[in-house]
Write a protein that binds this DNA or RNA. Structure first.
Lengths: 162, 162
DNA sequence: CCTAGTCTTTCCACCGTGGAATCATTCCAG
DNA sequence: CTGGAATGATTCCACGGTGGAAAGACTAGG
């Protein structure tokens, strides 16, 4: 590895990291009867809950790039496992609002606990200033990836549009 | 977002990035008749080729956390699609060495081209010194994730052991 | 009403797993 | 050197899980 600051090297590292993450998910997912998509769904619902607006099956379908039927089946799985509730919206009764249960949070914690255990010491070695820089970098790279997936040409967009 | 240097925030960003990447892969995969595992396999074979040692079905099976039959089926798909060749090893004729064809490299390029188009301008905004810092950070985080997936307790291991 | 939007159901194809068996090759103990 | 493990790759089978396409049900709003 001659030049650790080259763009190609960074791209390769980003790819390597996602591969390792998929590996981790598949390894620990089978222990908890959860698969990749289910975890992504929980993450997306949680994320939406934190930012205020409610998550619906339609939004989730677009967020995860899943077809509508696959999303329904996904929600059936999560609901029968007790991780999510479907609540018909009172303002528009076509819509269904998704709510996470406490057991979902427990599963999330249980799944990420071993990963966090390894990640924390690696991250805490960096001072706050460098962590902020990495955070900024990751934010922009995630936005760029999202833009690429959406086929957009705006590589600097940070705001979700849907 | 109150504190962009907190560990939790960084972990969340890492997770967000992998979600966006999965999204991109699934969007691209459907266009090219390739699935996530197939692309990961190509990446793993390519990676092994760059680092010198040859990739074999057994190694690939462990790398991708796939069962032996699933790996054979995966290689059948890739071979019939013309992306990989199976060559019996000359040193140990039980083993099969995997070689990528030119069309696999084309697919790889086609896959990363739109992503790189968005990623490059975002990355190039950072000076070399900061990029090197991010590269170091990502290397350690990937190693930590790998260690977590392997169930190891050594969070700082950088060398693959298999 | 009638069109559009949201969610769901039904049916089907593909991917991955598990277990067990096959076959060739290599390693090793005696 | 030989006979018996061990290793690496592949195949077959039945099974479950995931995702897509088409079609239907329901509600909102002009």
């Amino acid at each position: 590895m001659p030049d650790t600051s080259s763009v190609d090297h960074l791209v390769r590292l980003l790819r390597l990291f996602t591969m390792e993450t998929e590996r981790y998910i598949s390894a620990f997912g089978t222990d908890n009867e959860m698969h990749r998509t289910d975890l992504n769904a929980l993450g997306a619902i949680m994320e939406a809950g934190q930012s205020g607006d409610a998550m619906t099956p339609g939004r989730l379908s677009r967020r995860l790039q899943l077809s509508a039927p696959a999303t329904s089946a996904l929600l059936d799985r999560l609901e029968s496992a007790g991780h999510v509730r479907r609540v018909r919206s009172t303002v528009d009764r076509r819509r269904v609002d998704l709510e996470l249960t406490d057991t979902a949070l427990d599963v999330g914690r249980a799944l990420f606990a071993p990963l966090a255990k390894h990640l924390r010491p690696a991250i805490e070695r960096y001072p706050a200033e460098q962590r902020a820089l990495v955070a900024e970098f990751l934010t922009e790279v995630a936005a760029a990836t999202r833009a690429a997936a959406d086929g957009s040409t705006d590589a600097t967009a940070t705001k979700p549009r849907k």
